[in-house]
Design a protein around this nucleic acid. Structure first.
Lengths: 195, 195
DNA sequence: AGGTTATCTGAACATTTGTTCAGTATCAAA
DNA sequence: TTTGATACTGAACAAATGTTCAGATAACCT
C-alpha cells in the first residue's frame, strides 16, 4: 500500500495539527508519541514528517498559531474608547475567546517548557504583547483618574490569571451561562481596579 | 558493588522525593525518566523501587503530601474572626505559602492528568477541601453583609486563580517585595468582593 | 493515455523507557 | 565476632520512542 484514495495535504495537515493539539492537551506533550498522533489521524507515523520536521516543531506551530490568532482577534475588537469600556471589552473578549479554544490555551500555559530556548522566546514575546494590550488600558485608565492601581504591571498579570482561570472549571451547559460568567467576572474586575 | 557507605533510608527517601519534584516541575512528569531521578540522587535506577512501587506512585506521593501540608498549614493559621480579617489572612497565607513551594504548586496544577482515576480523585478532593475553606469565608461575609458577591463559588475560584498566578512571575529580589505584593493583591481582592 | 508529482506505507535504526532481581556490601544488634 | 536485616548494584527484559527512507499507489496535468 502507499498513497490512499482521497488523500490531500490540505486535509491531512490540519487534521494532524488538530489531533496533536487534542492529545497534547489531554496527556501532555512528552506523554504523546508520534505513533499515537498518526493513529488518531488514520495514518502511519512516517507520514507525519511530510508536515513537520520534528515533534517539537509541531508543538511550536500550535502554540505560535494560537498566540497569533489571539492577538489578531483582539486587534479586531480592540476599542479606542474610554478605559472603562475598553476594560470591559477586554474582560469579555478574553473569557469568550479562551473558552472557545480551551485546548490551545491549556497547551500555551503548560508546554512552554518543552520548547527549545529560541522557540520559547518567540512564544514568550507574543504572550507579553498580549499582556501589554491590557496594561495599556490600565495605564490610560489610571492617567484619566478612573482606575486606582498601585502597580499596573501587577494588576495586568493578576487580572489575566483570574480570567484564564475560568477555563479550569467552566463547562457548557453547566450551572452558569457564559453571559452570566462574563458579567460576574467583569463586576469583580471593575471593582478590583477601583472603578 | 552493593550497599554504599553511609546509606540510610531516612536520607535517601527524602532525597528521591526532592529530586523527583525538582525534575518533574522543570521538565514534566512524562519527560523525566527514573534513571534521571536516580542519577540526580547519586544512585542506580533499581534503587528507587525500594522507595516507590512505581513512577506514578512517586508523583502521587508528592502531590498528596503537598496538598495535605497546605491544608494543615492553613488549619494552623485559620482565624475565627470576622470575614474581612479572615479573607486578608487567607490572601496573605496563600501567596506566601505557595511562593515557598513553587515547584510543588506547579506540579499540583500541571501533572494531575498523569494520575490514574483513583489517585486523581484523591488529589481533586483535597483541592476542593482547600477551596471550601475560602468559600466558607466568602459565604460568612456575604451573610454578614460585608461582601457583595453574586456567586461565592465563582468568586472562590476567581480569587484562587488570581492569587496562584503570583507564582508565574514573582522572583525573590525582584522589583517588588513580598510584602508589597501581598498588600497589593489584598487590596484588589478586598475591592473585588465589594468590601 | 501517459508521465509527473503528491501522498502514504511498512520496515528498519539506534536509543531509551519502566521495572525486576540475583547478588553483594554495609549497617546494627547480640 | 557472628548474624540477620538493610541498602544498593549491575545486568537484563520486552516494549516503546523519534526519525529516516526506498518503494508503491493515487491524483493531477497535458
Amino acid at each position: 500500500m502507499a498513497r490512499k484514495t482521497g488523500s490531500h495535504s490540505e486535509i491531512t495537515g490540519p487534521r494532524i495539527r488538530a489531533e496533536a493539539q487534542r492529545l497534547f492537551a489531554r496527556h501532555g506533550f512528552a506523554a504523546v508519541s508520534m505513533r499515537q498522533i498518526a493513529a488518531a489521524v488514520g495514518v502511519q507515523a512516517g507520514a507525519l514528517y511530510l508536515y513537520t520536521p520534528d515533534k517539537e516543531a509541531l508543538l511550536f506551530d500550535l502554540l505560535k498559531s494560537h498566540m497569533e490568532e489571539l492577538l489578531s482577534a483582539w486587534a479586531e475588537v480592540a476599542p479606542r474608547t474610554e478605559p472603562l469600556a475598553a476594560l470591559e471589552t477586554f474582560v469579555r473578549f478574553h473569557i469568550r475567546f479562551n473558552l472557545t479554544r480551551a485546548e490551545a490555551v491549556f497547551l500555551s500555559y503548560m508546554e512552554l517548557r518543552n520548547l527549545s530556548p529560541g522557540n520559547f522566546a518567540v512564544i514568550e514575546g507574543l504572550r507579553r504583547a498580549y499582556e501589554t494590550e491590557l496594561e495599556k488600558i490600565l495605564i490610560a485608565g489610571r492617567a484619566a483618574g478612573v482606575f486606582a492601581l498601585p502597580d499596573t504591571k501587577l494588576a495586568t498579570l493578576a487580572i489575566i490569571a483570574m480570567l484564564t482561570g475560568v477555563n479550569t472549571w467552566y463547562r457548557e451547559g453547566g450551572r452558569l451561562s457564559l453571559d452570566t460568567v462574563e458579567a460576574t467576572y467583569w463586576d469583580m474586575v471593575r471593582k478590583a481596579v477601583g472603578a
